[in-house]
């Protein structure tokens, strides 16, 4: 299951990491190096006995009680106008190459 430069390009794209072409080979080599140590897992047989059914999670009461912000959004947002966060224009929902 060797990682190829195309794999790294694909994965970097999914993760929105701008990786210069000249750094690609290093990441390919390092990922292959790391993943070679993972192969040992494929040889493991057998599964742990099913853990007893957990109690599950505690839920929150449906109450309007947000954790307050000690600093206004405008002061930490990189770009804000009229209360909106601003990003470069997307013509439609499709432009980011993803859909909700």
């Amino acid at each position: 299951m060797a990682v190829t430069p195309d794999d790294v390009r694909h994965v970097a794209g999914l993760a929105r990491l701008g990786i210069p072409e000249d750094a690609l080979a290093r990441y390919v080599e390092q990922l292959n190096g790391i993943l070679s140590h993972m192969e040992v897992l494929q040889r493991v047989k057998g599964e742990a006995e099913a853990t007893p059914p957990d109690a599950g999670m505690a839920l929150r009461e449906d109450r309007v009680a947000p954790v307050p912000l000690a600093i206004a959004r405008e002061r930490f947002a990189p770009r804000m106008r009229d209360g909106f966060f601003l990003v470069p224009r997307l013509a439609t929902h499709e432009d980011a190459g993803e859909e909700p």
Binding site: F76, P78, P88
Partner: peptide
């Protein structure tokens, strides 16, 4: 988008 470092680029993906 909401906080932290931001480097502008040509479009959202950039």
């Amino acid at each position: 988008v909401r906080y932290g470092m931001r480097i502008e680029g040509d479009g959202i993906r950039a």
